[in-house]
Computed example of a mutant assay.
Amino acid sequence: MNQKKTIQPPPPACRFDALLSPTPRGARLARVLAVDWLRTRGLPHRVTEAAEQIVAELAANAATHGRVSGRDFLLALLAEADACVLRIEVTDTRREGLPRLRPPTPDADSGRGLLLVEALADRWGVGLGPVPRKTVWVELDLPRP
């Protein structure tokens, strides 16, 4: 008797995308939507908290430094079970002024966001393309099952 062996496909990657206005309200909405999506994935609390802070910083940067009138920014979250990684991407339409780590002056009111991202991320970077877009991406490692 031959039994057919059923092969289960790998679980699909879970993805969330949202176009948001490059305003403080859009940045807040990015954080709220990300937290809601992350909580439904059942990720560890440590990962969810780090991702919430990272999304808040990157979205605020997109609304502040990447703002171009009439052009939204894109928030993308991708949880890849096979790769055990959560990837956060924020894409805006202002290519100039690429983000880079700079030591803030002690009396500065801002300028510490990327330092926080650096501390929380396992990996992060900036990708260019297509003109005039840039994407700041962050990866957080997930525990292996």
Rank of each mutant, 00 (worst) to 15 (best):
P145R: 10
V47F: 03
V126G: 12
L116D: 01
I54N: 09
A119W: 10
G26S: 08
E96S: 15
C14L: 12
D36M: 01
P132E: 00
A50H: 13
R133W: 03
T93P: 01
G66M: 02
A121W: 01
P9R: 14
A76S: 15
A30F: 05
L120Y: 01
P11G: 08
G66C: 02
L120M: 07
E49T: 09
T40D: 11
V35Y: 00
H65M: 01
A119K: 13
T6V: 15
A121I: 07
V47M: 02
R25K: 09
G127R: 15
R31M: 03
R39T: 15
L33G: 04
G42Q: 06
P24C: 02
D82M: 07
H65E: 02
D92Q: 09
R39N: 14
P24Q: 06
M1R: 13
T48I: 14
P130M: 13
W137K: 04
R71E: 09
A13I: 11
R102C: 05
A18T: 01
L114Q: 02
L115P: 02
R46G: 03
G111I: 04
V32W: 00
Q8S: 11
V55C: 11
T23N: 05
L29H: 10
W37G: 02
L140D: 05
T40F: 06
K5T: 15
V126D: 11
C14E: 11
L38C: 05
A51F: 05
V47L: 07
V131W: 05
Q3R: 12
L116I: 14
P12T: 06
D36C: 00
A119E: 14
T48W: 00
L78V: 09
E118K: 15
L142I: 07
Q3L: 13
A83K: 11
G26F: 01
F73P: 10
R67D: 04
T6M: 14
R95K: 10
N2C: 02
E96G: 12
A76M: 09
L29V: 02
P44W: 11
S21H: 04
W137S: 05
C84F: 09
P9E: 13
G125T: 07
C84R: 13
H65I: 01
W37T: 04
V68E: 14
D107T: 12
P132G: 06
R15D: 04
R71W: 10
P44S: 10
L142T: 06
P24L: 02
G111M: 02
N2P: 04
L77Q: 12
A60F: 07
S21M: 02
L142Y: 06
P11V: 13
M1Q: 10
V32M: 08
L98M: 14
W37V: 04
Q8R: 14
L43A: 05
P145Q: 05
T23Y: 04
G70C: 07
A59H: 03
G113C: 01
L115C: 06
L38A: 05
A83V: 07
E57P: 00
A81I: 04
G111Y: 03
S69A: 14
I88Y: 09
S69Q: 12
N61D: 08
D36K: 11
V131F: 06
V126C: 15
P44N: 12
L78T: 13
I54L: 08
T105P: 00
P24S: 03
